[in-house]
Amino acid sequence: MILHILTKAPDSNAATQMQQAVGDRDAVMLIEAAVIAALDPSWTAWQQCHARIFLLSEDLIARGLASIAEVNGLPTLEMNGFVALTEQYEKAVTWY
């Protein structure tokens, strides 16, 4: 079980490669530029990692995307939720 941390936009090579590597029980945390994914509920990763993929609130707020994420019904986590997630998974892989 791996926590994948994506720091690049959904249309980046990093995002594509991460999607190739994500396993059935892995989780995904979207931070930094990856929170742009809030704008695109049709991004394939939302289905691929259903219930195990989250946007980081702080980075959404910084980019003015928090309410859009809410309207699009996409799951978010605060920083402490992110920290809890890193403790729950045995290893983390960052994609940048």
Partner: peptide, 17 residues
């Protein structure tokens, strides 16, 4: 094969990207 990549990740205790 790309389908085997997730398995490869699971099999390794340490990963550097």
């Amino acid at each position: 094969a790309d389908q085997q990549i997730p398995g490869l990740f699971q099999q390794h205790a340490k990963i550097l990207n």
